[in-house]
């Protein structure tokens, strides 16, 4: 399986994403610059964290206007997997690929620590390697991770089982319903504030994030083995 790790000016988790795929999973991965206009050689797209365009105006707003995002929209429409983490999640909401928006953390602080997440939905292509309701330890590092959407959108998210991860312990950012990650209705675009790519080796504290990537690869293998 071949992954694209998008790189915007100001991305800073791109190397961790690359490492997770290349070194931990042994799959193919390439960096793709934000002005790229073709993603046809890839099977999965990873939108990494960071501060694209300095977070000027709004997180993810200007990254959404880059050439590669038009391709990511086509990629998602084709049903292929797209994972956005942290700033990547913010970019996917700005792009309209996921509903809602990420607001400033309720306590106005940049939060950088490992948190407990609950796997609310393990019936997705990103989470089927986890147990339902499993508690995992994954780091967060964000100042604007306070998920918000209107009441109607929230009702839809619940009805369609689109809330994939919630904060299990203390909610670090004030997000609605403790939401940490959501998936689109079709089930091929996941956005989450915590960083699974920073939790891929017990030597560095936790490997609980690895199953996100393993889930994607296993699903892809099963549908591509002839």
């Amino acid at each position: 399986m071949k992954f694209a790790v998008l790189v915007f000016p100001g991305s800073n988790c791109d190397v961790d994403m690359y490492h997770a795929i290349k070194d931990e999973l042994g799959e193919e991965v390439e960096y793709v610059w934000h002005d790229a206009t073709d993603l046809s050689e890839f099977d999965g797209v990873l939108v990494p964290g960071g501060f694209s365009y300095g977070d000027y105006l709004r997180c993810g707003a200007m990254a959404n206007q880059s050439n590669v995002m038009a391709e990511v929209k086509k990629f998602a429409e084709a049903g292929k997997p797209v994972l956005g983490v942290c700033n990547g999640f913010q970019i996917l909401t700005e792009a309209g690929l996921l509903p809602g928006a990420l607001l400033r953390n309720k306590n106005l602080k940049f939060m950088c620590r490992t948190v407990e997440l609950k796997v609310e939905n393990n019936d997705t292509l990103f989470t089927h390697q986890y147990e339902a309701g499993q508690i995992i330890n994954v780091p967060i590092a964000h100042g604007e991770g306070n998920y918000f959407c209107d009441d109607q959108t929230l009702a839809e998210l619940k009805a369609n089982n689109q809330i994939v991860f919630t904060y299990s312990g203390e909610n670090p950012n004030g997000s609605l319903e403790d939401i940490a990650g959501i998936i689109n209705e079709r089930g091929n675009v996941l956005g989450m504030m915590p960083h699974p790519e920073r939790a891929v080796d017990t030597l560095l504290g936790s490997d609980d994030g690895l199953k996100v990537f393993k889930s994607i690869v296993k699903m892809w293998r099963e549908s591509h083995v002839s």
């Binding site: 200007m62 206007q65 509903p99 809602g100 928006a101 918000f148």
Partner: peptide, 9 residues
């Protein structure tokens, strides 16, 4: 609507 404001929020 395209860039300067995010009408969701």
């Amino acid at each position: 609507e395209k860039l300067l404001a995010n009408t969701v929020i």
